[in-house]
Amino acid sequence: MKKQLKRQSNTGKDRPRIMAGYNFAYLDEQTKRMIRRTILKAVAIPGYQVPFGSREMPLPYGWGTGGIQVTASLIGPEDTLKVIDQGADDTTNAVSIRRFFSRTAGVHTTTRTREATIIQTRHRIPETHLRNGQIIVYQVPIPEPLRFIEPRAKEVLRMHALKEYGIMFVKLYEDISRYGRIAKAFDYPVLVNDRYVMSPSPIPKFDNPKMDCMPALQIFGAGREKRIYSVPPYTKVKSLDFEDYPFEVERWSRCCALCGSDNSYLDEIIMDDRGSKLFVCSDTDHCNERVAGGYKGNQAESIEEAQISTGTGARKCA
């Protein structure tokens, strides 16, 4: 990774120590080479799902075994890792994966998007624009966008090979005829580089436009399904739609209660037993950074009090 990215959040301290008895970043070198070769192929064919020999990892399928293998193969001692789960840095899964790499690879970890060289994510893309040189690794449960439409795996392969994607539009058509709009809100299918239809993993469709011509390298790992695919930097990513029903992202009528942001993806949080609700940024790092910069939402103080008094706070604020 680039030099300037190496500035650590915990400057001055030494890197964490690698646990004895493990190879660097847990996987053995042959496996990492195999996965790197897969990644190279995936980068060479944007959006194409490359099969790979997925290994057993010390966490269950569905918890990010694909993403963690990709990260393990890419990470070097100089890298700084950020892991998010639905935008948050402090959920169990994110914390565990960060600790896994700090123990097995001795790398620095961070919660700051800007400081990370590798960002492993489940179901979100950070609000902060990613730079060229950064890598974002997505955890993918089901890589095949055609899976639930065409059950025959062989036929699906053929459809990809021949770029026969009419059936994807049948899905969208069904949505509009049933709900009056394209109802898909997560894992919204995209066409990569005008060639392959790809599942962007279950990120909200709000994040889809960020994938288009993103300066950072995007790699998707599906451990259980044994597939890796990629969107190289500055690649065209188009969300599928109809001319008369164009792709749209969701909008909120309110701003983040903590930082006042009016253009980030908001989570709805139930505050108490009476059902009072609060909308806050899903991307905790983004929110914290804004609060630190002096931005304020309309309920910033009252929330902190509420959190302290009731102990129901779903997140910690800076």
Partner: peptide, 23 residues
């Protein structure tokens, strides 16, 4: 898939990207 989707599939497979016309 609905009757409309069944009929529209070939049209969309052949590149028609207009819901109103498919319908």
């Amino acid at each position: 898939v609905s009757a409309g989707g069944n009929i529209g599939e070939r049209l969309m497979a052949n590149g028609l990207r207009h819901y109103g016309q498919v319908r």
